[in-house]
Write a protein that binds this DNA or RNA. Structure first.
Length: 457
RNA sequence: GGCGCGAUAGCAAAGCGGUUAUGCACCGGAUUGCAAAUCCGUGUAGGUGGGUUCGACUCCCGCUCGCGCCUCCA
């Protein structure tokens, strides 16, 4: 039985879908004005893992991850780079797709773009106005009135008065309450706009997700996810909008993944301490990055450093080494087997991937001991539920670095042949010389019963 | 200032009121021409002060330190 930590109730709860056997899940995706960084990688991988486990549990999943393709920063960037907004956003959507594919992230069932849902947003704003929750401000914006929505703050655990006390930000003059947020921004010079009953303008950020989720998943759905930093105000505002407009429950389970940190500080655009996914992939295999993310629990902070990725690479190599020795097929998992049972128990406990990974290592040790191809297949198939270990072990272990490496595979093979000849005439000095030469070039030679193999250190 | 999260061995990271987490690194042994890989084994933990308990890393309270949100952010 699956349990999920619900940010709304602050406890692990048994997961009961609204419609038996079916899950509707929405995750806040990217605002596409720049390359994805490691924080984005974490959201992509974490909710991909969630989605995979829900399906593996026999549930039919409808997974929606949106794309914000209109927003202040996008407009600013497009201006700066002298290109149209759609040129800019489609470029970065393409980069995002490439990153996601590299990380083994499966396509969501829907990837709605905000600009394609303007009518739904207008409809929603209209409902909010009719329900007395939205008002036209002096400057021409339409704002949401937080004081009129009872329960504002229930997700983030904040009270309006505490928030007001902590207010340190310049307040827009048109707001009745400093915490009111904009639903529709009136058109400004040189910015894109759409017609609306409230005049030409463009949507506020928060209304986008409310509109896209209700259009694709209905007004009440099972899981809503995103990064921890979206809990307030973004998700709080989504609740206010969606429940305020439809007068009913919005989301049953809220899931928030922890931050990626650098030197114990949050990695973020505003702090400027971020690493892009493609930067990391210049040095590390994408599967290493995926494994690095999944070997920590999704709610814990994840500290990034080269050292930790090196560590993850070594660990993943251990799993692939077991499969190199005893090839495993991708098969139906034997859920009665001990490791599979532990794996399921871990995953059912709020997606405890570190525990699930530990089971994979136990299983790998068992494979090494027993040389059982059944267990190797079990290992490969279980890991597949996390999107890991699906490649040919040799391909992983011998993968050529982006910089090309110091030595080509062909050169390695020819040196190994030379070394084999030296070994056969028992000229160990020559054989060891070649091995040392390879070692210096980052290649580890391993002699086995069936000859020598190599891998990158 | 308000609200919240965390502190586990050299590093990373989980579960668990009493019995080996796991990975990397390290040490001893087996194996190997020597290595590597693998196997076997040892060692290194639970911020701090109290409390509850037969027994606490695990529950409760205080303290210290770290982090996050309160503003765009995954």
């Amino acid at each position: 039985m699956l349990k999920i930590y619900n940010s709304l109730t602050r406890e692990k709860q048994e997961f009961v879908p609204i419609t038996p056997g079916r899950v509707r899940m929405y995750v806040c995706g990217m605002t596409v004005y720049d390359y994805c960084h490691l924080g984005h990688a974490r959201v992509l991988v974490v909710f991909d893992m969630v989605q995979r486990w829900l399906r593996a549990s026999g549930l039919e999943v409808c997974y929606v991850r949106n794309i914000t393709d209109i927003d202040d920063k996008i407009i600013k960037r497009a201006l700066a780079s002298q290109e149209s907004i759609s040129e800019l956003t489609s470029r970065f959507i393409r980069f995002m797709d490439e990153d996601a594919v590299a990380l083994g992230v499966e396509k969501p069932d829907h990837e709605p773009r905000a600009t394609e849902y303007i009518p739904q947003m207008l409809e929603l704003i209209g409902r909010l106005e009719k329900n007395g929750l939205a008002y036209r401000a002096a400057g021409g914006d339409v704002n949401f009135s937080v004081r009129k929505f009872p329960g504002y703050g229930k997700l983030s655990g904040k009270s309006l008065d505490d928030l007001r006390a902590g207010e340190r930000v310049e307040v827009d003059a048109g707001k009745e309450d400093p915490l009111d947020f904009v639903l529709w921004k009136h058109a400004r010079q040189g910015e894109p706009f759409w017609p609306s009953p409230w005049g030409e303008g463009r949507p506020g950020w928060h209304i986008e997700c409310s509109a896209m989720s209700s259009e694709l998943l209905g007004t009440h759905f099972d899981i809503h996810g995103g990064g921890q930093d979206l809990q307030f105000p973004h998700h709080e505002n989504e609740i206010a909008q969606s429940e305020g407009a439809h007068r009913g429950r919005f989301v049953n389970y809220w899931m928030h993944n922890g931050f990626v940190r650098v030197d114990d500080e949050k990695m973020s655009k505003s702090l400027g301490n971020f690493f892009t996914i493609r930067e990391i992939l210049e040095k590390y295999d994408p599967e290493v990055l995926r494994f690095f993310i999944l070997r920590a629990h999704y709610r814990s902070p994840l500290n990034y450093s080269d050292r930790h990725l090196d560590d993850a690479r070594q660990a993943l190599s251990r799993l692939y080494t077991a499969l190199k020795t005893v090839p495993g097929a991708i098969v139906a998992i034997d859920w009665n087997e001990r490791h599979a049972q532990g794996f399921r128990k871990a995953m059912d406990d709020d997606f405890n991937t570190p525990e699930a990974c530990a089971l994979l290592f136990d299983l790998a040790a068992e494979v090494n001991r027993s040389h059982s191809s059944q267990l190797a297949s079990q290992l490969r198939s279980l890991a597949g539920l996390l999107g890991l270990l699906q490649r040919d072990p040799q391909v992983f272990l011998q993968a050529t670095p982006v910089d090309g490496g110091e030595i080509s595979a062909a050169r390695i093979e020819s040196l190994l042949a030379e070394r084999m000849a030296a070994k056969q005439r028992r000229d160990f000095a020559a054989a060891d010389g070649i091995r040392n030469q390879l070692r210096a070039a980052g290649i580890v030679v391993e002699d086995g019963a069936g000859g020598s193999t190599w891998r990158r250190a």
